[in-house]
Design a protein around this nucleic acid. Structure first.
Length: 223
DNA sequence: CGCATTTGACCAGCGC
DNA sequence: GCGCTGGTCAAATGCG
């Protein structure tokens, strides 16, 4: 079951290509309006403006970093998730051609979320940054069953997107993992799930959750 | 009854 | 300073 967890941004496993680790300290910081899509044939396609309107600010200029803008980080030598996934799920490659996309180190609730509670941030404290990982999938359902239990805590209309963004938090006690789910307005079939933080506990439904996600995906060709 | 969802209010950061 | 936007809170509501 760990293996599922490792693919998601929630594991602290050393096998997971953690963007915070030295493995990726030569990562290439790309413009915030770019997204990398796996092809699993060794290429990493760069598509423009595909980070989904996840934040409207990221679609404006390349070096602009707004309050909530996302800096998409990719591994210098290709996509780490791609490599990891190929290693562990070689049989499912076909279904993964539409999957993600990118990780970022955007700012996270600088005023409240001091990692795990109550929130009040001390004056002068620097913004905390947590890695975020965005999964772009083509799916009829918004919520992909990743095996964890989530509680919805908010929903917001997003600029330039007719679909609202939903905010979820892991319900496991002490676990502060969050995710955002949003459907693309320019392609209603595409759902973007952004994970933030790391789970501090085993998966709740350890069975076949990852395969289930794959089954919910359809092949996505950007153009 | 307990838990999850909805939704308006609130707050902070940013650009102008 | 003001308005806009994203993110969160929390009371109200819904549901099994």
């Amino acid at each position: 079951m760990e293996k599922y967890q490792m693919f998601f941004p929630c594991s602290s496993s050393a096998n997971y290509p953690n963007p915070n680790s030295t493995n990726i300290d030569h990562h290439h910081r790309v413009g915030s309006s770019h997204v990398y899509t796996n092809n699993f044939d060794g290429r990493v396609d760069q598509t423009s403006d595909a980070f989904l309107g996840l934040n409207s600010t990221i679609t404006t200029t390349e070096n602009h970093v707004g309050s909530s803008s996302d800096e998409v980080l990719v591994h210098k030598d290709g996509h780490p998730y791609q490599q990891y996934y190929q290693q562990h799920y070689p049989s499912a490659n076909a279904g993964m051609s539409n999957v993600i996309v990118g990780a970022d180190h955007s700012s996270v609730d600088p005023h409240r979320a001091n990692n795990n509670d109550s929130g009040k941030k001390k004056k002068g404290e620097k913004k905390m940054k947590k890695p975020k990982y965005a999964f772009q999938t083509r799916s009829q359902v918004d919520i992909l069953d990743d095996g964890y239990r989530w509680r919805k805590y908010g929903q917001k209309a997003v600029k330039a997107n007719k679909f609202p963004r939903s905010y979820y938090r892991c319900t496991y006690e002490g676990c502060n993992v969050k995710k955002q789910v949003q459907r693309l307005s320019k392609d209603e079939g595409v759902v973007v799930t952004t994970y933030e933080g790391m789970h501090t506990h085993p998966i709740d439904k350890p069975s076949d959750n990852f395969e289930r996600i794959l089954n919910q995906m359809q092949i996505y060709t950007p153009f």
